[in-house]
Each structure stands twice: as C-alpha cells, then as structure tokens.
Design a protein around this nucleic acid. Structure first.
Lengths: 370, 370
DNA sequence: ATGAAAGCGCTAACAC
DNA sequence: GTGTTAGCGCTTTCAT
C-alpha cells in the first residue's frame, strides 16, 4: 500500500485574495514574463532601464514569486529538512537554532520534524519531506546504518552525531573533552570513577564511553560502568543510587540531564557535591550553568553543529557557501567547562594528608535516608 | 525594491535519480493519469479493481506525488508555519513540540522560523513563508498590533499568547493560575509580595501583572513591583538583589528562568528558600522540577497551546479536525504547581505565634553580603 | 536585450 | 467509472 498522508484539505476553496503572478508584473512593466523572471533572477542580463521598470512594477504590486511553480521547473525547493529525536531534550533545540539561523541566512527555509526517537519514523519523515526539501539533516539518528543508507539514497543527507561512511556528517569530538574531564579529575586526585551510561546503542554513548575508556587508561584511573539508564533526569536519579555503592569518588554522566538527576539525588541523600563526590556532565545545556552548584561539564558545540550541518548540506546540494569546505565529516571540538561540581576527593584528602588541616568540613554523611 | 531572497541555487542541476511521476504509474496500471490521481485522493470514486491496480503500480514504483505540482493547482501546500521569538527560551520548544505533533498528525509539515525577538523579522518571515504555507502560527509576537493586522491580511494567522480582536488566538488563562498562586501564598500567611516583572511591553507580562494585581487586591496583599528585567536567568539574579530590600516575604517572578536566577542569587546570599523567602515562578519549564529546591510555579499548557493553535489554524483553512471548535480565541487553563519554594513566611510566624514552637529553625539571615 | 513558447507534475472540469 | 485536456506560475531554451 502506498500510504500517502493527504491532509484532508477542503479543496479548491482558496484565498479570496487573488495572488498576483509574474504575468501581472509583466503587463504592468510592458515586458514579457521572461523578462520579469530575468529581472529577478539574473538582473545583469537586462538593460538597466528595463530592469528598473520591472523591479518597480514588481514592488508596486508587492509581487512574490510562487515557490511551488519555481520548484516544479527547477527541481529545487529552497527548503531544508531537519529531523530531531525529541524536542523535549534541550540539546536539540540548540542544534535547531543553529540550523535555523544558518539556513535563513542562506535563503533557505527549514522544515522541522520530531521523530519521537522512532527509527522507522525517521525514514518515513524523510519520505514525507521528500520533494519538499533539497536535503535533510538528521540529528542523532536512531535509525540503523542500513536505514540511513537507504535514506541517503533518496535525498541529500547530512548526519549530526552519527558517523557512517559515505554520508556527510557533523561530529563532535567528545574524546578531547573527555580527556580534559578525566585529566581534571585525575589532577584533583580521583582514582576511582563511575560512568553513568546512556542508551547502549546510541552512537553518542559509544563515543563517550570510548573516549572515557582511553582517557581513564592513560590516567590509570579505575572505571566502573553503570547502566544503561534513560538519558534523562530520572535516569540520573536511578544512576546515583547505584553509583554511591561503587566507592567511586567521581561520577561522569552520559549527559547533563542525567547529571542533574544524579546531583539532585545525591543531595537528597545527604551526599555533598563536590565535597563527598564529584560530578561531571556532558553537553552544557542551559541548566548546567543554572543549577546549584553549577555543573562541571563537557560543552558540546550544539549550535555550531547545526550551522555546520547546513553548510555541509548546501555544499552537497551544489550551493557552496564560502565557509564550508569539502570534508565529508566535520569534527567540532568539545571543551571541559569547570564549574562547581568537581573537587578533591574526600578519600584522597585523608590518604594524602597534605596541606593545611583546614580542609572542607569533614562531615561524613547527613541524616538522609539509606 | 522587491527583495526576494533567492538562494544561490545551482540551477537545473538536479537529481541523477529521475523522479517518477503520475504518468509512470498511469502507464504501468494501464489507466489515465486522472485515474491515478483519483486512486490516491478519492479512492471511493473508483472501481475496486482499478483502484487496487493503480495502488499496486504506485507502490511498486514507490511513487510519491510532487507536492509542488499539487500545490500549484490546488493552492494548498500542506504546510504550516510557526514563528517563535527565541528557540533558546525553553518555553518555545515546548510549544513547538505540540505544534509539530498535531501538524504531522493531520498530515501537515511544519516550517519553522526564529524571529530573534525582532518585530520586523516576524513580518518578513511571514512574507518569506508566504505561499509555502497554508497559514502561520506566531508565538508570543513582538510585532505591533498594526503589524499583526497587516500580517493577518496576507495569510491565515493564528496567534499564541497575544490577544488581538479579529485574529484567532490561543491564550493562556494566567489569571486562574495567578489566583491560585496568590491564594496559596496568602494561605501560608504572606502579606507582602514582590513581583519581578518581565518586559513591560510583553503581552504576557501585562497579563500576568494584571492577574497578580487583581489577586493581590482580593487577598489584601501588599504588592511591590520591581523591574522590568530581562526574562532570563540573569534578570532573575538582578531582580533578587532588589527584592530582598523590599521587605517582601514572597517573590513572584515573571517566568521560571527569572525565578531560577532569583533562587540562585538568594541562596548565594545566604537567604534560604523557602524558609526566609518564598518564590513562585511561571511556565513550569523542565528545569522547574529539576532544580533544588524544586520550584513552585504556575504551569502553562505549552504543548497543548501548540496543538490548539494548529487546530485553530486548520479550522481557519477549512480543514476541520473534530477536536477544534469554532471559537476565535481559545483559552487554556493554567495551574499552580506547589513544589518546594513556598512556605510560611518567617515574619508571619513571629507575628501569629501560633501552633507548636517546633517551627522551622528561625535563622534570620546568614552572613551573605548586604 | 527581449519575446514566444514549451513544459515541470499535477488536479479538476468536462466528456463519454 | 474512466479518459481527455486545460491550465496552475514559473523558468528556460530558442528565436529574433
């Protein structure tokens, strides 16, 4: 079955306002429609006098070319699509913002869709957008490699946060940020660390995990991995309870939402952050800076990724903004932002027994439940 | 000058994949193109046998009608536009989510634009979307009444959080939530309250203020108004410092972002929330439930508003989903959500000196500056 | 430098 | 029931 979702349009009933067409402008400027078309698209082909006359007529009539008609003949739409897994996750609106800004800047409009984290929906949405767009950006796709390859065959595709050979993508260099984070923790004296894992299959989670493993090894830090958890506030809450039993002095969460959940749960249990346990998040969403204490986190360049994705896409489409270069995969740096959820581990203080005796008050654990 | 932003398309160069058209399907099914068109749009007009044959052919060819061609003749696009002031404000992604969900559900695609809080941009964007959409939703517009009226003349328009006679809109009944909030505060024993105002001209701010004034009067609560402040975290920080000097025992912020800023600043100054001062936000953004202590706030039905806006719009377009009714202005209820930033005022306790002596520890104000 | 005309892919009269 | 056909508004040869 061909499932084409026709909106149940009331057909034919259209604007009482009669739209003005290229013909009206032509008539008023005493030229042919071809000339009007040229005046707008390739002004240099016309005598200045003619051009001015046409432009004037167009302006007086407030003429706007019909994009559908144009698209029909050129095959280009001037639209790009963006598909995100979940608008509720603050990560994606940020990417979206970058996409939107850059697209409009290049004269493109943006078609938005939310896949609800459903791999099949991602494919369908691309189908639906189909001829409406010149290409689509799929952000942190849930679809399988095979599905993505299929999608790539039917439209110009750019991925964000997913590497797949042959498909252009904007990636974030989590390894770098992770190295900084672990370096930071190691420098503070942490030796044992828990990773609160996100969804196993998520490309981002695998990347972060990989970076973490490498960094931990090079710093001779013990690593215990927990999860997977829902990459949300609730997941963080769940994770925190597990983490406190591991003897880890520092927690690295898959993302900020989880970190925030963990933070909240730790505090609720009377475990102080960062005095009793350090906590590092990932993403640097808005709230990371707003919570108390502000979260140390690895900032992902979300808006920049959105912009880069558009550049890559337009490049693929044959539209080449100067800023875009020809790489297939573009890697953006991530950076550790040290705020207030990381500090020297309580245990290390005892062990190394250095400096002044006036360390942080050595409370062990408050009357929280347990 | 007619400023038509042409994307610098590489023209003519199009898909190596030749798109299949209605003709191909017709040929394969041994029918006319009209029959194919009908098989997809009005199946009941065809003999079952024919219909099946056509549908089969369409499926085999993976045929997808070209929306541009259809749009050209029907005048409908199957798209709706949404313009938001700022994607960074968590309020709007929530609305967007509702819009997106309902639109897709009705077979519509969503064109997104961010106005950057620029009134002129709002008007331009509607122009640009123009014939690409069947109508547009403008969310919390910055444009003037006159501008909006002009916009309404060129497309089907639905407003969110802005009332303007003659233009359909989805409004949020802040008065109700505000009444609940003030009632709650009054019941706790608060007598003096500071309102941390948002932007003066913002319709939402005026509404909230109006609701507050009425509620405060009816509860005989003293009101001091501060601001206007930037409706952001930073604005809340600024506001908090001012608010502590007013002698108010409770703060009502224009929105949650400000409330969160105020919360952070109060805590930083050693003023305990809710023991020393109560705090109420507005909106119920995601973080409101995630911060510590969780924020008491008036929840705005953002996603529902997005859905309602789409219903209203489709209704205007002549597409009438069953759930939509004919009102021009649709008002959605707001509800107070009591969490942990509101409590009995410290002063009231002294004054009323009732109940047990075992009230909250009666610390006055910690060593914060001032 | 400009115009005439042929469609792009589809729907909607209108025939039969 | 199904086919024929005339466009929708625009761009783009091809003439001139």
């Amino acid at each position: 079955m061909v499932t084409i979702a026709y909106p149940n349009h009331a057909r034919g009933v259209r604007d009482n306002v009669v739209a003005i067409t290229i013909r009206d402008v032509a008539r008023r400027a005493h030229v042919s429609v071809a000339t009007v078309s040229r005046a707008l698209a390739e002004p240099q082909l016309l005598r200045e006098q003619t051009r001015k006359r046409v432009l004037a007529a167009a302006e007086q009539l407030a003429y706007r070319p019909n994009p559908a008609a144009r698209s029909l003949i050129t095959g280009r739409t001037g639209n790009i699509g963006i598909i995100v897994p979940d608008l509720d996750n603050p990560f994606y609106p940020s990417v979206l913002r970058g996409v939107q800004a850059r697209a409009h800047q290049s004269g493109y409009a943006v078609l938005l869709a939310d896949s609800g984290e459903d791999p099949a929906a991602e494919e369908n949405l691309v189908h639906t957008m189909g001829k409406q767009v010149d290409g689509v950006i799929v952000c942190a796709p849930f679809a399988s490699d095979a599905q993505l390859a299929r999608i790539a065959r039917m439209t110009t595709l750019v991925l964000v946060n997913r590497r797949l050979s042959g498909i252009p993508a904007v990636l974030m260099d989590v390894a770098r940020g992770m190295r900084q984070a672990i370096g930071h923790l190691a420098a503070l004296g942490h030796h044992r660390l828990a990773y609160l894992s996100g969804p196993r299959q998520a490309w981002s989670n695998r990347e972060r995990r990989r970076g973490l493993l490498a960094a931990a090894r090079s710093h001779r830090i013990q690593l215990v991995e927990l999860g997977p958890f829902e990459p949300k506030f609730e997941g963080g809450i769940e994770a925190a309870d597990l983490a406190v039993n591991t003897g880890a002095t520092a927690l690295v969460a898959y993302n900020d939402m989880m970190a925030l959940g963990a933070l909240r749960r730790l505090v609720a249990r009377g475990i102080r952050v960062p005095e009793d346990v350090s906590l590092v998040g990932f993403d640097d969403i808005l709230y990371a800076a707003m919570c108390a204490p502000p979260l140390t986190t690895v900032a992902m360049p979300m808006e920049a990724a959105g912009r880069a994705a558009v550049d890559l896409l337009l490049h693929q489409c044959g539209d080449v903004p100067p800023s875009a270069n020809a790489q297939l995969h573009q890697k953006l740096a991530s950076t550790l932002i040290i705020r207030a959820t990381t500090a020297k581990p309580a245990l290390a203080q005892r062990a190394s027994a250095g400096s002044s005796a006036a360390g942080p008050r050595a409370r062990k654990r408050s009357p929280g439940q347990e």
